[in-house]
Structure formats: C-alpha cells, structure tokens
Write a protein that binds this DNA or RNA. Structure first.
Length: 948
RNA sequence: GCGGCAUUGGCGGAAUUGGUAGACGCGCCAGACUUAGGAUCUGGUUCCGAGAGGAGUGAAAGUUCGAGUCUUUUAUGCCGCACCA
C-alpha cells in the first residue's frame, strides 16, 4: 500500500478532533506537566516555516510526556493586540478586531494542519474581554499595592495609609488630593511625569525594549525624548528579586546573562559633596569610591534637579543655552554624534577627603535616570571623564602606580594606589573596601546597590489595546470597582489620534464613568462635579500587558471569578517547559516574571517564578535563490546564466544576481516554465544551461522524447522575507510532503537552539525514510522477534528516549533511519517490533505512527498510539553489546591507540582484575597484532590501554 | 568597551561521561532497472597518495596513556547590552 500522507493525516486529525483527544483536565491522578509555546502575534502574512520550529519541538515533548503517563497541559493562544493591526486599520478603516480575527483563523488552520496536540478548548486571545478582564484586574491590584522594600514584597496600599496615619502627624493635615499624590509615589502601578520615548510617526510612547538605536523596533521611526504624564509599573522595585530568581530557574546561561545585563546590578557608594558657599550638599553614586582623591570635577545630568540650585548668575545664560540644545537633540542624534559637550555651572564642590574645591559641570554624558544623576569625575581612571577633561582642559590626577594617563585613562581595577592619602599602597580591590568602610564610618555617604532596570512605561496612545480601568476625578485617577471589569474597548469612528493630540479613544462617545450607577455612559454628560460622571483614561495598555500572565489563564481559561482558581494553580503550579525566541529576553520575559512575582506577593499564584525551564529555539533564516542575468557585451537583459558557469571567463563579472522565488526552484534547479510565468519581465527569458548550451531540449538518444535541461541557481542565507522571495509556507510543504515530513524535517535541520537557514534540499531524504518505514508494515507476522531485531529496536528506544529528554530532537531522526534500515535489511515484519517502532515515532510523526499502529492491530481495538505507553522501561534483550547491559562496565581495549576489542566486566571490578582479564585476552591480542602486550594501563573506571 | 555563543568534509550536521572523528541526510560518483529520469534500488564518497601509508575538528600552546570535547592565549563570525559612573 502506497504511503498516502494526505489521506492518513486528514483521517487522524479528524479522529483526534472528534475524540477530543488532547483535552486535558485539571483533575488527574497522573503527574502533571505544563508545556508552553510563546503565543504568536497573528500577522497578516500567516505562518512561514520558521514559526512552527519551536511548536514542533514542544509538541514532540508534550506527546512524549503524555505517552510516559503525564497529564500534559499544552495550550495555544494569540497575542492579539498590537500595532500592525492598528496601522492597517488606520490605512483601510477596517476594524482591527476584524483583521485580527481573520488572521487568527488563518493561523489556527495552519497550525491544525501540522498536527499539534493542543487543547484548543483552552485557547485564549488577549483582545477577548473575558481575557483582558484579568489584565485590567491585575492592573487595579498593582494600583492598590505598594512595594515594601524592607519586607521585599508587595503590600496593600491601605497598610501604607495606616502606617502614615500612625507614624506621620502631617498626614492628617493633607488634603485628599495631597494624600493621593503622596500615595502615587508608592503604588506599583502609578502615574508620573516621566521622560519617555515618544515616537511621533506612531503617535505613541514606547518602552525601552521597543526602541533600538533611537528608532522604534516596529517600523523603524525616529524616537525622541519627552516628558509626559504616563502610567508606569514599578518594575525596578523587583530588580533584586528578578536578579536572584535567575539562580533558581533552568534557563540557558546566555539568556540569564542577557537578563542580568538588563537588570544591571552594581555595587557602589553614595557620597555627599558639600557645595562651596551653600549649606546643602549634593549626592553622587560611584562604584569607584577608591578614586575619590582623583576627582577633579563633578558632572550633573542636564535634567538633574541640582542644576537649578548650582547654576550661578554669571553662568545662567550659558547653562540655559546648553540645556535648550540638549533638549532638542533626539535620542538618535545623541547616539549618532557622541562628541563631548558640557557647560560649567559656576559652582564648586568640596572634596570630602582632600577639601579641594572642584568645579561642577553639566553634560549629557551623565544620565539623569541612573544613580543620583550626578557623578564625581575621575578622568585618570574613567574614559568618559577623561575625554571630558581633555576637551575642557581639566586636570587629571593619576592614582595608580605605573598607570600612564598621558594618552588615555586607566580604567582597569588593578594596581597599587598612590596620591590617595589613606589608601596609598593598597591594591584597588582593598582600596574600594577600605573607602566604603571609611564613608560609612564618617557618615559622608553610604554603601548602596544600583540597578539599571527602569520602571516600565505602561501607557500607549493607541486604540488597539486594553483600556485602563481608570477614571479621573479632580484630575486624580481612581480605579473602577472590580465588578465593573472588564471595561470594554469602545467603538470609535476613527483610529487616528484626535486633532487635539488625544489618543484615538478621544473619539469614543461612550467613554465616561458614572460613579453612582457604576457604568459607562455618554461623555457628553460630564458637565460638572455634582453629576458624578467622570472622564475615563484615553490611553491603552502596551502589548506586554496581555502577554504577562497568559500562561496562568490557560490553567483555568473559562473562570469568570478569578484570573486562575487556587485549585487550578495548585495543580499546575507553573510552566514546566517554555519554548520561544530569545528576542523576548528583555521584554516579555522580564515583564512576565515581574507580573508573576507581584501575583505571588498578593497570593494569587503559588510559585514566584513562572517558567521553570526555558529553551530558546533558533531563528529559521531564509535561503534565497538567484538567477544570473547576463549584462556583458551585447546583453539583451533577457539571458540568464546557470550558476555553475558564472565564473567562466566569458561570464565573470558580467552577470547580475537576481532573487528568484524559492518556490519555483527545487534542489537549486530552476523550473524554467514557472520562472517565465512568474513575472511579465521574465516571459521571454533565455538561458545558458548547466551544460553550457542554450538549446532547451537535448536530443534523446533513444526514442526522440524531449529531455529538460537544468538551470542551476545560486543561493545565499538571508532573513526570511517577502522581498527576498525566500518565504516558504508550511502549507505548501505539507501539500507536497505531508505534515509528518515537515515535522521530521524541521527537527532534522539542526540543533533546536541554533539559528539555521531553511534549506529545502534534503527534505526528500526525510520523506523517503517515511515511505520506507511505511513499507515495513505490509505484511505483519506474529513470530517472535529475533535477538538482532530486538537489539535494533532497543538501541532506538534508548537513543530516542535520551534525545527527547535532552531536547536533542535532531539526532533522533538519523536513529530512526538507521533502525529502519537495519530492520528492513533483516526483513523484519514482527508485530512486536513494528508496534514499538510506531510508538517511538509517534511524538515526531504522529499521523503516520497512528496509521502504522493501526496496521499492526489484530482486531480493531482502539489502536491509538496514545494509549500505548512509550516503551522506556522495556526489558532489555540478552545481547552482547555492553551498553545495553546496565550493570557492567565497557572497557574498550586499545593496542597502541587503536581499539581492538571491548572487554566487559562488572562495574566495580578492581583495577588489577581488569588487567588480568586483559592479559587473559592476550591470545586474541596476539592474533590481532602479532604481538603480546608488554604493559597494560587501566585508567580507573574506563579504559584499558595496552602497550605493545 | 562589557558579556554570551559558535567555528568539524562540497553542504546541513553526528560524536551523550575525555576513549575507533566525520553517524544520518543532501550533493556527487559508479552500477542496476528503465523509452526516459529531476523515479526507485545497490555500492562508493574527509583530504593527500597509484599504493603502502600519511595528515586531519579556525590557529598556537598546555594538561592527559589518550583531546573535536578540559585549560590558557589568539583569530573569525553571530547575538545581547552599551556614555549605567
């Protein structure tokens, strides 16, 4: 029977769907396991072959775990809010919900075809009110909590109020508004005037991770700095815990490093410097307290609050000019043009150790948001200070013996101190410690830790996002009561910002809060305060809001009473395995961990880290194909040279590579008819074929039938994108080879975590394997398997089990091929072997495995591979291979470096016993080598080396 | 500048604990079948060498009886962060 993958795959996909085969319950005696894919943003372009890579890997693991007897939660959903849908809406007027839902539908149909074992009944999408109710709910909780730094935990804001009432006599004297303003400084979700990344082209602010090199990550539009009143999340409060938690998760080192980098912990000291003529010191942060004797000037960030106070009358004009210039410089300009700039304030600080008077400058190389926004400059040992000092001709005092600072600063933290008073003669490391001690003891400062991680800006001036459940009374924000959630996204007539610069929600008519009746009403009713009708927040939440806790929702997706029930969360605990791209390292994966830790603090979840193990699948790059247009003498622009000829003298440097659609190229051979039909300009294309001739048919030496000629295309690895014509759609691959081949081939391509190009050359080999494997199931015998057959099978069992548990999926496919080869060579048609083979293959190629298993079955029993356990603990057959026998040790015996035979003996055999055994084998050795061993070296536990 | 990862045939890549480097697939070569092959099957395929044999995992050194694997130095490539004091 032919391997009809279309029929098989359709049949089993329907069978799984009808049987609801992958629905999973929150109640089970089985051990639980939660496998999660990073849910996709459903873009208009649909899936390409790169997307399913991680999904296939996680699907293999899920199926394996299920076959091993686990209750596996393996869901899929959609990150449905986002800019592209909204941009499209602005251009076409189509409601983003319509396009988003269309895209989701397309994604689902593409995903279904690949045969994933998702529990679709648990699917979520972030733009669903039933889902974003809990995004809004979490926001309200964050608004109503503050971070208690002493306890390192979020606590209800009411406790803070109680503390103020008890400890601060001025509290009672404040007005309600003043009290609210004060509380706002503590809330975890808070409103503040902050410097933001404003993107005029997108009309919205962006988070730090959404900006790269002064351009928006989406769209690549310029971003500028602006101060705006924004919602923020106090992520920075969680910095120590976000850092510490990394030690307790099983993630790759590189990803943890990226996060550590982003969190950016640095230990140092804050020091106070008195100001000459003022009785009010300034505080700076430094990690090099040891260099305080070399401070020759101070620098303030332009935005520093010290600037106003320290600018003298004579310098005011110069300072203001400089501040104005800095303000109008975009982030992009600042990065592109890193020249040294600055201005003197006119004030002097007093070095607390030397009492020297040191000038205070302003420069934009000091950042307002880090430390205290002011630094002590030590030009001898900091390259940035050095550049500044050279530019403005400020003194440079070297502090480390032997350091030459005539050309550049000496930044290394090594060497012996000099010119440093009490620190002279100490090593830098000891000097830092001593100085910290000195600072603490004398009270001129304190030892502190600084983090680079900033609070997340949480407002977006966009339409297609979660509305904030917030209304404004007397200009102060109040959250909607819990029973009013979700606050549904209103209809608007225009998705662009309003003329007055308000976000698109400014167009919404029904966008006012009736406090008395607790409902949304027409905003025209906002007339006066007595009406108790107030405006609702116009911004929406950013993309990461909906993706920060979606993994919890899968545990309990239909719960209307809670984000996740206690029972469901206690059962699933956390995500055991999370698979996704490393591009989310500093965005989603930080926000999720923050969000989860907050939920942990308030008792909603039982684990403070959301993702126990995390694997980054590599990116699939495109593999572009090229044709070579002849542009040399007499070129018509219509002649294309085969790739193997382009370095011939007559064509060298006379051809121009042109991208050609990879879908009309097979194994780098161009389909010339398809090429001519592809675009009008190629309609009359002529070719020089691989054999160097131009005639399109070769005379057939036999019957005169035409034989097509080959045009070979060149290739290159590039990003997979439409413009390179190298996008491969999984649907096309499935139509041609089937989902099982696609799954196998994606895994076969290389290690999961590495980036690699999608190269369709070679997919035939994998497809051939499936065909050959299928052919083994023609006539099945009930005879007892032979030892050899069992050996092949058990090698495979061992290998595949190891591979799956170690996420080394790519190496399983060769193992299957070898086993298939061996079994075919033995003409094996034993039911016991073939059944097991199908069971092993099931995680990788579930459809064909089901069909194989079905063919093995005597009567029509349920015959699902699912119901048959993965054979991890099958009895090992008697055989001679050491590695199949668990309690013996294998000693490959080498003679002069070449292994000649393998010696087997019990694991704990003493060394001299092994030597004796080897000598006893010396007869063999003599025969093999024509010599008797002179010396036998036994390395404990492993190898026997025989020197002849 | 800081940090992480990588480098093995013509190509993708194996080598799981330091133990026969190049599994498996592609491509290529030869053969079989065939009107035909861009189908299928069989055999071969790291390089040099006719052969015996020799060389060989980016480069150099080290540890070891033994190194693709461990250590140090170095080169190249990819990724992340970057005026973070």
């Amino acid at each position: 029977m032919e391997y009809n993958f279309q029929e098989i795959e359709q049949k089993w996909q329907q069978a799984w769907e009808q049987a609801n085969a992958y629905a999973v319950s929150n109640q089970s005696d089985k051990p639980h396991y939660y496998v999660l894919d990073m849910f996709p943003y459903p873009s208009g372009a649909g899936l390409h072959v790169g997307h399913p890579l991680g999904y296939i890997a996680s699907d293999i693991y899920s199926r394996y775990k299920r076959q091993c007897g686990y209750n596996v939660l393996h869901p899929m959903g959609f990150d449905a809010y986002g800019l592209p849908a909204e941009q499209y809406a602005i251009q076409t007027g189509q409601h983003p919900e319509v396009t988003t839902n269309e895209n989701i539908k397309r994604y689902i149909s593409q995903l279904r075809k690949i045969g994933f074992c998702y529990d679709w009944s648990r699917s979520v999408k972030t733009c669903d009110p039933g889902f974003y109710k809990w995004t809004q709910w979490a926001f309200v909780q964050m608004f109503n909590h503050y971070y208690d730094t002493a306890a390192q935990k979020a606590k209800p804001i009411s406790e803070l109020v109680a503390r103020f009432e008890a400890e601060d006599p001025t509290w009672a004297t404040l007005s309600e508004r003043e009290q609210q303003e004060r509380l706002m400084q503590y809330r975890i979700a808070y409103l503040a005037d902050t410097k933001v990344n404003w993107c005029p082209a997108l009309g919205t602010v962006l988070a730090n991770d959404e900006v790269s090199e002064g351009l928006s990550v989406r769209g690549g539009f310029p971003v500028e700095q602006r101060v705006m009143r924004q919602w923020c999340l106090r992520v920075s409060a969680y910095a120590p815990r976000l850092l510490e938690g990394l030690d307790r998760v099983d993630w790759t080192e590189s990803l943890k490093e990226t996060q550590r980098n982003w969190i950016g912990r640095s230990e140092g000291a804050e020091m106070r410097f008195e100001i000459k003529g003022q009785n009010n010191p300034i505080t700076i942060f430094t990690t090099r307290a040891d260099t305080v004797y070399g401070v020759t000037f101070m620098v303030l960030a332009p935005e520093s609050e010290y600037v106003e106070r320290l600018t003298t009358a004579e310098q005011r004009a110069a300072v203001e000019e400089y501040l104005g210039w800095v303000k109008h410089r975009t982030e992009r300009e600042r990065i592109a043009d890193r020249k040294v700039t600055g201005v003197f304030t006119g004030s002097y600080a007093i070095n607390p150790l030397t009492n020297a008077e040191i000038p205070i400058w302003i420069s934009d190389y000091v950042l307002a948001g880090y430390g205290t926004g002011a630094i002590m400059a030590v030009p001898a040992h900091d390259s940035r200070d050095y550049a500044f000092a050279k530019h403005f001709n400020l003194p440079i005092i070297p502090l480390i013996e032997g350091a030459d600072v005539s050309e550049q600063s000496f930044d290394a933290k090594e060497g012996k101190m000099m010119n440093s008073g009490i620190l002279n003669g100490l090593e830098v490391k000891d000097a830092i410690a001593k100085m910290k001690e000195y600072i603490t003891n004398t009270g001129i400062g304190r030892v502190t830790v600084n983090y680079r991680l900033r609070d997340a800006i949480f407002s977006r001036q966009r339409y297609w996002g979660e509305p904030f459940p917030v209304y404004y009374k007397d200009n102060m924000p109040y959250t909607l009561p819990e029973e009013a959630l979700p606050l549904q996204l209103p209809e608007v007539k225009d998705f662009k910002p309003t003329e007055t610069g308000e976000p698109p929600l400014g167009h919404a008519q029904f966008w006012a809060w009736d406090e008395a009746n607790k409902c949304v009403v027409d905003k025209s009713q906002i007339t006066n305060h007595k009406s108790q009708i107030y405006p609702i927040e116009l911004c929406t939440m950013p993309g990461f809001a909906g993706s920060s806790a979606y993994y919890l929702r899968y545990m309990d997706p239909h719960n209307d009473e809670a984000l996740v029930s206690k029972q469901a969360n206690d059962y699933w605990q956390q995500v055991d395995l999370y698979l996704g791209g490393s591009e989310h390292a500093t965005g989603h994966l930080i926000y999720s961990r923050f969000w989860n830790k907050f939920l942990y603090d308030i008792g909603v979840v039982c684990k403070d880290e959301p993702f126990k193990k995390l694997i980054n699948q590599g990116m699939i790059q495109g593999r572009s194909n090229f044709v070579y247009r002849y542009i040399g003498e007499g070129a018509t622009g219509n002649l294309y040279i085969s790739y193997n000829l382009i370095n011939n003298p007559e064509y060298k440097d006379k051809v121009q590579p042109i991208h050609v659609n990879v879908n009309i190229v097979h194994n780098d051979v161009l389909d010339i008819d398809a090429f001519r039909a592809w675009m009008p300009e190629y309609k009359n294309a002529q070719f020089v074929f691989a054999d160097g001739t131009s005639s399109e048919v070769e005379d057939n030496p036999y019957m005169g039938a035409a034989m097509p000629k080959m045009y070979i295309c060149g290739w290159a690895v590039e990003k997979m994108s439409k413009s390179m014509f190298n996008v491969v759609n999984p649907d096309d691959v499935i139509a041609k080879y089937g989902a099982d081949t696609l799954r196998l081939y994606e895994m076969f391509l290389g290690p999961l975590e590495m980036s690699k190009p999608w190269d369709t050359n070679g997919i035939d080999g994998v497809h051939r394997f499936l065909k050959k494997a299928w052919n083994m199931y023609e006539e099945i015998s009930d005879a007892e398997p032979t030892a050899e057959e069992l050996r092949s099978l058990h090698k495979l069992i061992k290998k595949v089990t190891w591979d799956i548990e170690n996420f080394s999926f790519n190496t399983s496919i060769p193992a299957f091929m070898i086993a298939q080869n061996e079994l075919a060579a033995l003409k094996c048609n034993k039911r016991a072997i073939l059944e097991s083979f199908a069971v092993l293959l099931a995680p990788y190629a579930p459809h064909i495995a089901e069909a194989m298993y079905e063919r093995c079955s005597v009567e029509s029993r349920k015959s699902k591979v699912e119901s048959s356990n993965f054979v991890i603990d099958a009895p090992w057959p008697e055989c001679n291979e050491a590695y199949l026998v668990e309690d013996t040790q294998k000693y490959p015996v080498q003679f002069n470096g070449k292994v000649r035979f393998t010696l087997e003996c019990p694991k704990d055999t003493p060394k001299d016993e092994v030597e004796k055994l080897v000598m006893a084998h010396s007869e063999t050795a003599r025969q093999l080598n024509g010599a008797t061993p002179k010396r036998v070296i036994v390395v404990p536990g492993r190898i026997v080396n025989v020197v002849l």
